[in-house]
Deep mutational scan, measured.
Amino acid sequence: ITIHVNGVTYHFDNPEEAEKFAQKMAKTYQLKMEIHNGEFHME
């Protein structure tokens, strides 16, 4: 699972971890999250 946050790329093997991380980042930084081709993009 690949997550892009403001141009920084994070890779996770565990989908649950990826989702937790994505939600935490979105909440902490008030980010808008989109999913493209199974990759999370946040800005």
Rank of each mutant, 00 (worst) to 15 (best):
33 M>T: 03
31 L>S: 04
13 D>G: 09
29 Y>I: 04
10 Y>T: 01
17 E>W: 07
38 G>N: 05
7 G>R: 07
25 M>Q: 02
21 F>G: 00
22 A>H: 02
22 A>Q: 03
41 H>P: 02
25 M>D: 00
36 H>G: 02
31 L>R: 01
28 T>Q: 14
4 H>R: 08
37 N>V: 06
10 Y>N: 00
11 H>L: 07
27 K>E: 13
19 E>I: 13
12 F>V: 01
23 Q>M: 12
8 V>G: 05
2 T>H: 14
34 E>A: 07
37 N>T: 04
18 A>K: 02
31 L>F: 08
43 E>M: 14
14 N>G: 06
6 N>A: 12
26 A>P: 01
27 K>I: 12
21 F>C: 13
40 F>R: 02
10 Y>H: 04
42 M>K: 03
3 I>A: 02
38 G>A: 04
20 K>H: 10
17 E>K: 09
5 V>K: 01
16 E>G: 07
8 V>N: 09
18 A>R: 02
39 E>V: 08
3 I>M: 03
31 L>W: 05
1 I>N: 02
17 E>S: 10
12 F>P: 00
42 M>L: 12
23 Q>Y: 12
9 T>F: 06
8 V>A: 09
25 M>V: 04
15 P>C: 15
43 E>N: 10
17 E>T: 08
39 E>A: 07
40 F>I: 14
13 D>L: 12
25 M>G: 00
33 M>I: 14
10 Y>A: 01
16 E>C: 15
12 F>T: 00
36 H>I: 14
4 H>C: 15
43 E>L: 14
23 Q>I: 12
11 H>F: 10
40 F>V: 11
23 Q>F: 10
5 V>C: 15
35 I>E: 05
41 H>M: 05
2 T>A: 07
38 G>Q: 03
35 I>S: 04
21 F>P: 00
20 K>R: 10
38 G>H: 05
32 K>N: 12
5 V>F: 11
9 T>E: 05
14 N>T: 08
40 F>Q: 04
35 I>T: 04
29 Y>E: 14
42 M>G: 03
23 Q>P: 00
41 H>G: 02
4 H>K: 06
25 M>A: 02
7 G>K: 07
21 F>S: 00
32 K>R: 05
10 Y>G: 00
18 A>I: 02
6 N>D: 09
40 F>D: 02
1 I>R: 07
7 G>N: 08
12 F>R: 00
10 Y>F: 11
34 E>C: 15
3 I>W: 05
6 N>Y: 14
20 K>L: 11
16 E>Q: 08
36 H>L: 11
1 I>F: 08
12 F>L: 01
39 E>Q: 09
30 Q>R: 04
37 N>C: 15
4 H>P: 01
33 M>C: 15
35 I>K: 03
26 A>S: 07
15 P>T: 09
11 H>S: 07
17 E>A: 10
3 I>Y: 05
2 T>D: 09
36 H>N: 06
6 N>W: 15
30 Q>P: 14
14 N>S: 08
17 E>P: 02
5 V>E: 01
13 D>Q: 09
4 H>T: 06
22 A>I: 13
26 A>T: 03
28 T>M: 14
19 E>D: 08
5 V>G: 02
15 P>H: 09
2 T>P: 03
6 N>V: 13
13 D>I: 12
33 M>G: 02
2 T>V: 09
29 Y>S: 08
15 P>N: 07
32 K>V: 14
34 E>F: 15
31 L>V: 12
28 T>A: 11
5 V>W: 10
29 Y>R: 03
8 V>P: 00
27 K>S: 07
33 M>N: 01
40 F>G: 02
41 H>R: 05
43 E>R: 14
2 T>W: 13
1 I>S: 03
19 E>A: 12
27 K>L: 12
1 I>H: 03
37 N>H: 09
14 N>E: 05
22 A>F: 04
23 Q>T: 11
34 E>G: 04
14 N>F: 08
41 H>F: 14
13 D>V: 11
25 M>F: 03
32 K>E: 13
19 E>P: 00
18 A>T: 01
9 T>R: 13
17 E>N: 06
17 E>C: 15
22 A>W: 06
21 F>W: 11
41 H>V: 09
21 F>Q: 00
35 I>W: 08
11 H>Y: 10
19 E>W: 15
17 E>H: 06
10 Y>I: 04
6 N>F: 15
30 Q>A: 07
32 K>S: 13
21 F>A: 01
28 T>H: 13
29 Y>F: 06
33 M>F: 10
42 M>W: 06
22 A>P: 00
1 I>G: 02
14 N>C: 10
6 N>H: 12
33 M>Y: 09
34 E>W: 14
2 T>Q: 06
39 E>F: 05
6 N>G: 09
24 K>M: 13
39 E>L: 04
13 D>E: 09
41 H>C: 14
18 A>Q: 01
6 N>R: 12
29 Y>Q: 08
29 Y>K: 04
30 Q>T: 03
6 N>C: 15
34 E>Q: 07
11 H>K: 09
36 H>S: 05
33 M>L: 13
16 E>W: 10
19 E>Q: 12
9 T>A: 13
11 H>W: 11
39 E>I: 10
23 Q>V: 11
29 Y>D: 14
32 K>Q: 13
12 F>C: 08
33 M>A: 02
35 I>A: 03
40 F>Y: 12
25 M>Y: 02
38 G>D: 03
20 K>A: 11
35 I>F: 11
34 E>D: 04
3 I>G: 02
32 K>C: 15
29 Y>G: 14
21 F>Y: 02
35 I>D: 03
32 K>Y: 14
26 A>V: 04
36 H>R: 13
42 M>T: 03
23 Q>H: 07
42 M>V: 04
12 F>A: 00
15 P>F: 13
40 F>L: 13
32 K>P: 08
24 K>F: 15
35 I>R: 02
39 E>H: 10
1 I>Y: 10
20 K>Y: 08
24 K>G: 03
35 I>P: 02
7 G>Y: 11
23 Q>W: 12
7 G>W: 13
10 Y>L: 04
10 Y>Q: 00
35 I>Y: 11
18 A>L: 04
7 G>T: 06
35 I>Q: 05
43 E>W: 15
